[in-house]
Amino acid sequence: MKALRRFGRNLAFDFKHNKALLVMILPIAVYLIIFHYLPMCGIVIAFKQYNFAQGIFGSPWCGWNNFRFFFMSGKAWQVTRNTLLYNAAFIVVQNVLEIAAAIFLSEIAGRRFKKFTQGAMFLPNFISWVVVGAIAYNLLSYDFGFVNNVLTSLGQEKWSVYTDPQYWPGIFIFLSAWKHVGYGSIVYLAAIMGISQDIYESAALDGANEWQKIRYITLPGLQSTFIILLILAIGNIFRGNFDMFYQLVGNNGLLYNATDVIDTYVFRSLLSSYEFGMSSAIGLYQSVLCLVTLVATNLLIRRISPENALY
């Protein structure tokens, strides 16, 4: 109650003294309300038995029924775990590689080489997962794949990637890094550029070598960037990258135990049933989990290093 009253007082103060600032925030506020807050009303569909004639708001309520299929399948835990673990692995591996790439790029002297490397790393970001899926199939397919053609001509056993789930965590982590590291490293590169050259110069005067500069100046300088990116990534940790998982695995049931994430599972189960309520229910489930982890992470960071917390 007290907080609310304080909020009201602050708002009144702002209206009186900071009109210009409020006008500046107006367009983005309108945008957020129209495109992000109003559509949230659609969440009710998760609790409705949707029918076409009555639409989202007119359809009858059905309680928690739309969530039932997900939990009765016995797969809820498995796909949620897969989603979480894959995303955690992506976050760790990609951030390490991005930081390494950014430091590498910032230390390189040759301009041409630097541009070329950066361009080459950036390129995969523009290739769609559909294309990546097709390339992977052409490389790894059992009977027609390039890899197996080479293996057979060398007299080796064929490699059956599409029937063996054990390879897939590695493939996903590799491909996801291949596609995203170039893009992600730019953010870190910008942060490195923001570190004052004076610090490096004084370190050089004190006799620090390159490794020491990286260890004691660059890495600590990247800390806040890292934490912000981490919090943002954790905000999506229960959302599987549908494009990637679906384009690479498709309808290959033998791999599902290792490759199924929430999004692909829901897509497959509901593709032909037109149950918009059920798919929305799982979307809501993901959002709630994401919100909880996001708030928890932020709380934790506020405890450890308050200046880096998001809010």
Binding site: N65, R68, F69, M72, S73, G253, S269
Partner: peptide, 23 residues
């Protein structure tokens, strides 16, 4: 029976299809 049908759909994809194709 929408919940059951959705779940069965998935079981068919995951267990039925590889079996039917002899994997």
């Amino acid at each position: 029976y929408q919940s059951e049908l959705a779940t069965l759909q998935n079981v068919n994809e995951q267990y039925g299809k590889p079996l039917r194709l002899g994997f």
